[in-house]
Design a protein around this nucleic acid. Structure first.
Length: 374
RNA sequence: GGGCAGGUCGCCUAGUUGGCCGAGGGCAGCUGACUGUAAAUCAGCCACGGAGAAACGUCGGUGGUUCGAAUCCAUCCCUGCCCA
């Protein structure tokens, strides 16, 4: 049920790859961007809107859905797809990122992580096995191993500890995963190792050795520079099996995506398009703009003159700026829709460019317009 | 005409046993940040003059009391309510 095919005739070990991922809920053309729907909702979007844009897969989050409504409730509702009425594929993150983002509310132990709920203060323990069990109940097509995402910056010794623990946890996750239906759900391992070459290489080797259906690169987008995250890719990707999808977690900006695809990444997720949309920023072919800015008050044209999304076809930037100033929900909705459309459109362009063997030219053209704002 | 309550930096408001107040808070406004979502959030700026830091003047006006006034006194102006 779960397969990954790469277009043949190209050296796909390094360099941009064009492929497709078969899941129980549809085929995903790669490279792909997956919107983040932490609490079984991509913030400000309806499932119809996500379908209209064309996303084949979205994310959910184990930690958040465990806290509310709980995996049992979702299981009783027939699983995440049925619960949220999403016919496409779903990938659930394991809660490993919450080890990083909720660092003030948790305690790491060898056996797992003790979290204090930000909702009501109650205590909860997550182990590699329990995280897989929760994800089994949620029923996502792709589930993630429980990992420890180290902060940035972080001393090598501490990163190594987190990485070693991530490897041990990955083996436990695999073991627990194999007790379920491995055809219905694909488990991805996660490479860690911070920004140390030696650790990243070791982690890539260790995770690759588990021979899981997919491999993610975690521990990036934690505050480091773009150069540092690209280094991680260059150390890691050449050591990963060619025939497994590579998922760069939490990345990124449009430029990040292009740079990562160029180095051989197949899958991405990031909150930027949705969060920025809610906070007043939108992506355009000529760079990112802050819609709340006075300069758009009288703008009669669309947010992005080169965009064909519903929001840009119908509403002016000046109108949407007005909606932001009035705190109208519609502002967040239109901007989020636009940003997601922008990302989806970007990925389509990337895929076509790879198919036609013109990725380098595509990149140059995109960057020129995006950065120079011609 | 009489009585009462008030006039604070765009708006609302704190401050009235005088010094810690050129003055706090909220809103509005401007700018920026956001990368496996505790985020429709957060941060900075925000009276005027001045290029601007400092200094300086300005809390309805004017004049007093005082070492010192948004705070006390006098007077004028204005606003709201009540009585004629």
């Amino acid at each position: 049920m779960f397969e990954f095919d790469l277009d043949t005739g190209r050296d796909a070990q390094v360099g941009p790859r064009r492929g497709r991922l078969r899941t129980p809920h549809g085929i995903i053309e790669t490279p792909v961007f997956m919107p983040v729907g932490t609490q079984a909702a991509v913030k400000a979007m309806t499932q119809e809107e996500l379908e209209a844009i064309g996303f084949p897969i979205i994310l959910g989050n184990t930690y958040h859905l465990y806290l509310r409504p709980g995996q049992d409730a979702i299981e009783r509702a027939g699983g995440l797809h049925s619960f949220m009425s999403w016919n496409g594929a779903v990938l659930t993150d394991s809660g490993g990122f919450q080890v990083f983002s909720l660092s003030g509310l948790r305690q790491i132990q060898e056996e797992g992580v003790r979290f204090r709920s930000y909702l009501d203060g109650s205590e909860h323990f997550f182990s590699p096995r329990s995280v897989i069990q929760i994800q089994r109940a949620l029923g996502a097509d792709i589930i993630m191993a429980f990992d420890e995402c180290a902060p940035y910056p972080c001393a090598e010794e501490a990163v190594q500890q987190a990485m070693d623990r991530t490897h041990r946890w990955a083996r436990e996750c695999k073991d627990e995963w194999q007790r379920g239906d491995t055809e219905e759900q694909a488990l991805f391992g996660i490479v860690q190792g911070g920004f140390y070459r030696r650790l990243r290489e070791e982690s890539a080797d260790q995770i690759a050795e588990l021979d899981l259906p997919g491999i993610a690169i975690g521990g990036v987008s934690v505050g480091e520079s773009t150069g540092e995250s690209l280094s991680v890719l260059e150390w890691t990707l050449p050591r990963l099996p060619r025939n497994r999808p590579r998922y760069l977690m939490g990345v990124g900006t449009p430029i990040d995506l292009i740079e990562a695809v160029e180095r051989g990444v197949d899958m991405f997720d990031c909150v930027l398009p949705t969060r920025l949309g809610r906070n007043g920023s939108v992506y355009t072919s000529r760079g990112r703009i802050n819609l709340r800015s006075l300069q758009f008050a009288e703008e009669r044209g669309p947010m992005d003159p080169d965009c064909g999304c519903h929001a840009c076809r119908r509403y002016s930037a000046g109108y949407i700026r007005h909606l932001y100033r009035c705190d109208e929900i519609l502002a967040a909705r239109l901007a989020t829709f636009h940003n997601l459309f922008f990302y989806h459109h970007l990925m389509k362009g990337i895929r076509r460019a790879i198919e036609q063997g013109v990725f380098a030219r595509f990149k140059a053209q995109f960057l020129y317009q995006y950065l120079v704002k011609v």
